[in-house]
Simulated scan of single mutants.
Amino acid sequence: MTEIVEKLRLELSQLSMQERAELAYFLIHSLDRDVDDNAEFAWDVELTRRMKEIGSGTADGELSDKVFTELREKYS
């Protein structure tokens, strides 16, 4: 890791979770230079399907608190 990246990493670790999430979102989307219309359509179809499952009560899932706790434990 370059010195600049390490310095940024240390400074950015002091941000709130919300600020880090917003920055992560920005950075990830800055890598997407080309938009795949087929992929966008497929995601729209998948998200619509999942929303219908949630709305009808047929979706299998975990509470977000449990998922985030498990992720924090795994990656901390």
Rank of each mutant, 00 (worst) to 15 (best):
S16Y: 00
V35H: 02
D34Q: 11
G57E: 02
Y75C: 04
E6K: 10
A21G: 03
F41W: 07
S76W: 05
R20Q: 10
E62N: 12
Q14G: 09
R20E: 07
F41I: 06
L23V: 10
E19N: 07
D36I: 05
M17I: 13
S64L: 09
V5N: 09
L12M: 10
D32P: 00
E73R: 14
D34E: 11
G55C: 01
A42N: 05
S56D: 03
T69V: 09
G61T: 01
R50D: 07
Y75V: 01
E22S: 07
V45H: 00
A39S: 06
D44P: 04
L8D: 14
R20A: 08
G61L: 04
S30E: 07
G61I: 03
D37V: 12
Y75M: 03
L47M: 13
K74P: 01
A42K: 05
L27G: 04
R49D: 02
G61E: 04
D44H: 06
M17S: 14
S30Y: 03
G57D: 02
V35P: 00
G55R: 02
A21S: 06
E3Y: 05
E46L: 14
R9C: 10
Y25P: 08
A24I: 09
T2C: 03
L31S: 13
T69W: 09
K52R: 12
G57V: 01
E11T: 08
L63H: 09
E62M: 14
T2K: 11
D32L: 09
N38Y: 02
